[in-house]
Amino acid sequence: MPTNRKYYRPYIGPCDPCPPIRVKSYETPPQLYLGFQPYGLKQFDPSTALRKGTLWPALYAPYTNPYEPREEEE
């Protein structure tokens, strides 16, 4: 499974006034990779699907604020 978030290290100039963000990120959610959805993929049960916004775990890509990294992401 591809990751939903990618990271890169931008150039940090010596004269930039603000404290630098050394690692930047962008989102790469699953629809970029899935292609035509194959038959027989795993499904959430209906009530979970209604809560998550999709029936398909393969399309479920929760988002968190990248400026507040969760511990497991650090």
């Binding site: 959610p29 629809q31 035509f36 959805q37 998550k52 916004g53 999709t54 399309l59 988002y63 604020n65």
Partner: peptide, 29 residues
């Protein structure tokens, strides 16, 4: 989502964001 610190607002916005993912997938199909 990045600008909110209200977990309930973030919850609803997360649902809407997930729907955009599904819609994008369907348009790609």
């Amino acid at each position: 989502i990045n600008m909110s610190d209200d977990p309930d607002i973030i919850d609803s916005l997360s649902f809407l964001r997930e729907r955009e993912i599904v819609h994008s997938q369907r348009f790609r199909e």
